[in-house]
């Protein structure tokens, strides 16, 4: 799988001809660290998590040898096969096992090889992990559970290696849903998720595993959850997105600027519970909102943002000037060029 993806990245590179860093100015962000790609940043976060907490465990399909995306490289050698290990190929087993491990006060870091295969674990996530604390009256909790899963389109993955299933999980009180946009963000957010006292589903943009490169501090740092990041300030329109889609939106902002449109770009980072205040403040300023995600429009998380912001910024003010647009990216392997069309749509 990894080799196939490498090929796809070449394709994407040739299409896009640019570095994907999702940084405010389109250049590599400087965080005074080592230049690294997204999977290496994830790997570093996992090293730190295991190093700093003897009760941390990493497990899932093929994680023992480093994982199909190499995110768990070197962990088993360093921390032992009792703490970093392969599991049988069974997603409901992985998450159920992780809940039990977390319920004993451990940091259970479970990997689901692709977000497309997370559905067998849906019951364990929705009915168990999310309700574990609530149903027991806080006698028990599985807050130490973090479920990592690569998500999103890579250009050739078809239906089963490209899905963005975040909206399913954003409907579930009791879990958090976090999606990073870049290596720096991935490391800081993942460490926060692992150490958060609630179960978290952490979707990693696999398109950017090798493609996105930026300076990442080598030390142990965390980025706040449920706090959106304004990565580009502007005055004419607010763009909201998360994960890999921000790369597309960033390019749209740059192109729009050439036409005299000033865009404010917000990375939601945590989708559940999400930071309404930051988006609301921006939309109050710009008066326009564009939400873009890879997942299908109908019932997508964009609808939640759109409904909330319409209610907060427009209905309550008695204003009629609503201007909200949803844009999605499809995941058919045949339709990769549509990514480019979507850039145009964003600019329109």
């Amino acid at each position: 799988m990894a080799s196939v993806l490498r090929r796809s990245q070449t394709v994407l590179n040739s299409l896009c001809r640019r570095q994907f860093s999702a940084s405010p100015d389109g250049n590599l962000t400087t965080h005074a660290g080592k230049s690294m790609n997204l999977y290496s940043a994830i790997n570093q976060a996992l090293h730190i998590a295991l190093e700093t907490d003897p009760r941390a465990y990493v497990f899932g399909e093929d994680v023992g040898f480093g994982g199909v995306f190499r995110c768990t490289t070197g962990l088993a050698d360093r921390y032992g096969k009792d703490r970093v290990f392969n599991t049988p190929l069974c997603e409901q087993g992985i998450v159920g096992f992780g809940i039990g491990l977390a319920a004993m006060g451990n940091r259970a870091i479970a990997e689901i090889q692709f977000a497309d295969y997370i559905y067998p674990a849906f019951d364990q996530i929705v009915n168990e992990a999310a309700k574990f604390r609530y149903r027991s009256g806080n006698q028990f909790n599985c807050g130490g559970l973090t479920i990592r899963a690569p998500y999103g389109a890579v250009g050739h993955g078809g239906h089963y290696h490209s899905q963005s299933p975040e909206a399913f999980f954003c409907h579930v009180p009791g879990i958090k849903v976090v999606i990073p946009r870049s290596p720096y963000q991935a490391k800081g957010l993942l460490l926060s998720c692992i150490r958060d006292e609630n179960p978290v589903v952490f979707f990693e943009p696999k398109w950017l595993y090798r493609l996105a490169v930026e300076e990442v501090p080598e030390d142990d740092f965390m980025l706040p959850l449920s706090q959106a990041d304004v990565i580009r300030e502007g005055s004419d329109i607010t763009l909201v997105g998360w994960g890999a889609q921000l790369s597309v939106m960033e390019q749209a902002c740059i192109d729009a600027e050439k036409e005299g449109i000033s865009c404010e770009l917000i990375d939601l980072r945590t989708l559940l519970p999400w930071d309404k205040e930051t988006v609301e403040a921006s939309v109050r300023k710009t008066g326009r909102l564009l939400i873009s995600h890879e997942a299908p429009v109908t019932g997508g998380f964009g609808a939640e943002i759109s409904a909330s912001i319409v209610e907060r910024c427009f209905l309550r003010q008695g204003e009629q000037n609503i201007n909200v647009l949803h844009v999605v990216r499809p995941f058919s392997s045949l339709h990769n060029p549509i990514h480019i069309l979507l850039l145009c749509l964003c600019i329109d």
Binding site: Q92, V95, G96, I99, G100, A102, G105, Q124
Partner: peptide, 13 residues
Amino acid sequence: TQLPQAVGIAYSL
């Protein structure tokens, strides 16, 4: 649902 969880708890023990 309690069964795979039981395995995780047992592993911790």
